[in-house]
């Protein structure tokens, strides 16, 4: 029986390996800058990516085995959580921030809305340990994985021996996250010279370049920095952003500039999910900015847009939607692996 299990599992994995050989996820899109992640320290391997994918979708990472990474980072919402302004955790607990969309992780150098995490490998530790998210410890996660037959096998395929450690667990999750590359939107096709903008999108692109591109910089649609964007502080959350991380007064109320890729699917918006629609976000930047707050130079001069211009800008923003990213079978729930695990 065990032998059967190993053979069939191996067959499934090698099948997957085949289907992934021509996948673009190991490649850098030609119009993207160089990766920021150091692949030399964690070189991608199909078996390790698969292990990372299983871990990403497995609620074993949470204290009561109820919440997985995917609970708040669902592929169909560009790896965030629609309908929930603030992230949810074990026992229906509610956090203080909106789950960010996971897109093009290999190009990021700091993580979380406040940049508290300095490396992709260490990112998963935060939600695993947060009492309002998974409420677990990495020590105990490793113990649970060590007691699982399927994970012992998956770790062996991934790392050539059966040792399950914190380092390996985190590196495997990183490997899966590194494969999440979105570079197949209409915008990308236009950059590649395969299609052209409509008149409306083209107008929107001009408005974008004049008003948004300095922070939401092409082609990643973020410059990875932290800024104050004039949002009134929500004092019920007492969240002052990057100040908590750096203890530097100038970082008061600064949050990470998020990517605009897949913005169509990643609502609600802002660090606390206060806006449900793109329309509300544009309303904020044109009429809602609190000018009493010290603002970055880009926002000091009010942005004036007519309602037609707003419609055009929105049309451009929708060219950043990458449906293939949402439905990429390589990113989805690894049913065959977690079905095996359920039988343990």
């Amino acid at each position: 029986m065990t032998k059967y299990f190993i053979i069939s599992l191996f067959a499934v994995i090698s099948l997957f390996a085949f289907s992934s050989i021509d996948s673009t996820y190991l490649l850098k899109p030609s119009h993207f800058p160089a990766h920021k992640y150091d692949f030399a320290k964690n070189s991608l391997k199909v078996e390790t990516i698969e292990l990372g994918r299983a871990l990403f979708y497995d609620p074993i990472l949470s204290a009561d085995n109820s919440i997985s990474c995917a609970s708040c980072h669902s592929p169909f919402n560009s790896f965030t959580h629609t309908d929930h302004p603030l992230s949810h955790g074990i026992g229906d607990k509610i956090g203080t921030r909106n789950a960010p969309a996971l897109i093009n992780m290999a190009w990021q150098t700091s993580f979380m809305w406040d940049g508290a995490i300095n490396h992709l490998d260490m990112q998963a530790l935060a939600p695993i340990s947060n009492p309002e998210e998974m409420g677990e410890t990495i020590e105990n996660v490793v113990k649970k994985l060590q007691n699982s037959k399927i994970y012992t096998k998956l770790f062996t395929y991934a790392f050539n021996d059966s040792a399950i450690t914190g380092e390996r667990t985190l590196k495997a999750i990183s490997q899966f996250l590194l494969t999440l590359v979105s570079a197949d939107s209409k915008y990308d096709s236009i950059v590649r010279g395969l299609t052209i903008y409509t008149l409306q999108e083209s107008n929107g692109y001009k408005i974008f370049k004049q008003n948004c591109n300095s922070c939401h910089t092409e082609p990643l649609f973020t410059n990875g920095k932290f800024e104050r964007n004039g949002l009134p502080i929500d004092f019920t959350l007492q969240d002052f952003g990057r100040l908590k991380v750096t203890d530097y007064v100038n970082d008061y109320a600064k949050f990470k500039i998020p990517t605009l890729r897949n913005i169509e699917y990643s609502y609600p918006y802002m660090h606390d999910g206060r806006f449900k629609r793109i329309k509300e976000v544009l309303e904020h930047y044109t009429n809602g900015i609190n000018y009493m707050i010290d603002l970055p130079p880009q926002l000091k001069k009010p942005i004036v847009l007519s309602s037609n211009e707003k419609v055009d800008l929105t049309a451009f923003l929708l060219t950043l939607s990458d449906r293939k990213y949402l439905f990429n079978p390589d990113y989805g729930y690894p049913k065959y692996l977690l079905d095996y695990k359920a039988k343990e």
Binding site: S129, E139, G166
Partner: peptide
């Protein structure tokens, strides 16, 4: 070493010597 990602041995985060809510 603090900004080098996941490391093993005594530096493995399961040793209880790594902050989780903030790297380091």
């Amino acid at each position: 070493t603090n900004v080098s990602g996941a490391l093993g041995g005594d530096l493995d985060p399961t040793k209880g010597m790594y902050w989780t809510w903030q790297s380091g």
